[in-house]
């Protein structure tokens, strides 16, 4: 059974105007259907306002679909009795690390989720140790989050989700506010969780380099999934991506241009090494 299943999902934001009484509807997602298997690494791309965050919030039941249905591990997110179960199964990491850390000490913050689940004190300790270990932040457990780097803060936020033992983790542009080093740290942790622990990962990002690691890529455009496929498939559609106002990795673009100019190399080159091999091999 697939861990996440969406069937004809639709969502409207209701916007209240200052002057007029009547509410205005903003369509953020329209008629999306997809399935994600356990252990998958999914990357979601799309320009600003294409509905990525709205979709992410549906997986965590922060938003409930206006039409259609979303199931997490077979549980309908619209059922209020199952709300906490859904949120335990599907953890969420947000963009700004400062705005999602609740505790004034690192380990107390990681404990926040398990505390809410009503787990015994001993179990909370073992889960916190385990989660901090997995993100490589055990040495920082007594620190104040304010004194950590962006990448470290984001790893603490991931540990906070990991400590709830979720089946899948949704990360909404977790690296957008980080420097290249922080980005690498965080991405490494995410990949490790996916590979070693088998956690399903849904990574929303603007960075094309981060997409390369995904099993599948969704490209969103005005509330719909416009393209779907493996990173190689997606990146061989350079012109289509450009139409969706997305850039491709520099190497991929270079390879694409070379191909157009008549050089014989395959489509969808993702790394510099591949391009070197294709040109010199």
């Amino acid at each position: 059974m697939s861990i996440i299943r969406a069937s004809r999902l639709g969502f409207d934001y209701i916007k209240y105007n200052d002057e007029s009484e009547d509410a205005e509807k903003v369509k953020a997602i329209s008629d999306i259907s997809f399935e994600i298997e356990k252990g998958d690494f999914i990357a979601v791309l799309g320009h600003n306002g294409s509905g990525k965050s709205t979709l992410a919030k549906h997986i965590n039941a922060l938003l409930v679909p206006t039409s259609g249905t979303m199931w997490i591990d077979g549980v309908n997110t619209a059922e209020e009795d199952e709300l906490w179960k859904v949120r335990q199964k599907a953890g969420m990491v947000f963009q700004n690390p400062d705005n999602q850390i609740i505790g004034t000490v690192v380990d107390e913050d990681v404990a926040f989720g398990p505390e809410n689940l009503g787990i015994s004190t001993e179990d909370i300790w073992s889960r916190v140790d385990e989660a901090l270990g997995k993100v490589g932040m055990l040495g920082f457990r007594d620190r104040s989050p304010n004194r950590l780097s962006g990448g470290q803060k984001q790893r603490v936020a991931i540990a906070g989700v990991v400590a709830m033992r979720p089946e899948c983790i949704v990360l909404d542009e977790p690296t957008a506010m980080l420097d290249p080093n922080g980005r690498r740290e965080v991405l490494e942790v995410i990949r490790e969780l996916n590979k070693k622990e088998g956690v399903t990962v849904i990574l929303i990002t603007h960075y094309m380099e981060e997409v390369i690691f995904a099993d599948r890529v969704f490209v969103m455009d005005s509330g719909e999934i416009a393209l779907e496929g493996t990173p190689r498939e997606i990146f061989s559609k350079v012109d289509e991506l450009k139409k969706l106002r997305l850039t491709v990795p520099q190497v991929t673009e270079l390879a694409h241009e070379l191909r157009k100019a008549g050089v014989e190399i395959p489509e969808g080159i993702l790394t510099i090494d591949e391009l070197v091999d294709a040109l010199c091999g």
Partner: peptide, 26 residues
Amino acid sequence: RRANDLAMAMEARCYHGGSGRTRMKP
């Protein structure tokens, strides 16, 4: 904006008030 984000992050981590909540450092 921060308050809004934080409220969402707390809800996403199953926060639902004090009832049924245990403590790491009671």
